[in-house]
Computed example of a mutant assay.
Amino acid sequence: MDLLAELTARRALCIIRAPEIPDPVGLARTLVDAGMPIVEFALTTPDAPRLIERASQVDGLILGAGTVMSDRDARDAINAGATFLLTPGLRPSVAAEAVRARIPVVLGAMTPTEVATAVDLGATAVKVFPAARLGPAYFADLHGPFPDVPLVATGGLNAKNAAEYLAGGALAVTAGSGVVGPELAAESMFEEIGRRAREFLAAMGTGT
């Protein structure tokens, strides 16, 4: 799986974080059908490795694990079926485990120094967080010294502002609770989740 190629084509990644997800298969299938197949299950969600293992059976799903904090987290996620990893900040042990396992890793960063360190650690792309506090212009600023570093905008993005971050220079953006709200996931409200995903993509200009 070429994560950069998929992010370039899709431009969106969905973050799933909820206190309860009774039907991860149905949730994943809903997002794939809506045109948002790059999905991360945050490890802060209870029993996340089991959810990843169950969701991995969904055809067309590009499945990752987020909020990966340690090499043990990384191994558990990979063993469960995650095909890429994301971290909230610089996590050298996670990067090393991803390199060892030969899977993509998206490391979190905010400052130019952190972006440079993420690149040195072998990041496939750099997740810039919190994007909404930094603004779309910050991505153009980062591309001055880092013209070839793929940047993923994360934090506070929604259907109303996502396109601004793509225009500002982000390779891709993340869709979080605005698409898969915790209560929607807990109650398996797939019709509403699918509607929100399609709305998000349409606002980005990538919907079908």
Results as ranks from 00 to 15, higher is better:
Leu184Ser: 02
Leu86Ser: 00
His143Tyr: 14
Pro104Gly: 05
Ile16His: 04
Ala162Thr: 03
Arg72Pro: 13
Phe200Ala: 08
Gly35Cys: 00
Leu85Pro: 08
Ala159Cys: 02
Phe200Asn: 01
Leu63His: 11
Leu13His: 14
Gly155Ser: 06
Leu31Ser: 04
Pro46Val: 04
Thr83Ser: 15
Ala162Phe: 03
Ala172Thr: 14
Val94Gln: 15
Glu199His: 14
Thr174Cys: 06
Phe84Val: 07
Ile52Lys: 00
Ala42Phe: 05
Gly135Asn: 14
Ala98Arg: 06
Ala18Glu: 03
Gly64Gln: 12
Asp73Ala: 08
Ala34Gly: 05
Leu51Ser: 05
Ile38Ala: 14
Val105Ser: 01
Ala116Ser: 03
Pro145Met: 02
Gly64Met: 13
Ala131Arg: 15
Ala125Gly: 06
Leu201Thr: 09
Glu191Tyr: 03
Met110Asn: 11
Leu3Val: 07
Ile16Phe: 09
Val128Met: 12
Ile62Asp: 09
Gly122Val: 01
Glu199Tyr: 10
Ala28Tyr: 10
Glu164Ile: 06
Leu134Lys: 11
Asp33His: 00
Arg75His: 00
Ala80Ser: 10
Ile193Trp: 00
Pro19Phe: 08
Lys127Gln: 05
Gly122Asp: 04
Arg102Val: 03
Met189His: 13
Leu90Pro: 05
Val25Ser: 02
Asp120Thr: 10
Pro37Ile: 08
Tyr165Arg: 04
Leu90Gln: 05
Ile193Gly: 03
Thr113Asp: 13
Val179Ile: 08
Met189Tyr: 06
Phe129Cys: 12
Ala12Trp: 04
Ile16Met: 11
Met110Trp: 15
Ala186Phe: 00
Ile103Tyr: 06
Val39Met: 09
Leu201Cys: 14
Phe190Cys: 07
Ala101Arg: 12
Ala186Glu: 01
Asp59Glu: 15
Val106Tyr: 00
Ala98Asn: 07
Leu43Asp: 00
Ile52Asn: 01
Thr154Cys: 12
Ala202Asp: 15
Ala118Tyr: 00
Gly168Thr: 07
Glu20Ile: 05
Gly108Ile: 09
Gly144Gln: 11
Ala42Pro: 01
Leu51Tyr: 08
Gln57Tyr: 02
Ala98Phe: 02
Val152Asn: 02
Val128Ile: 15
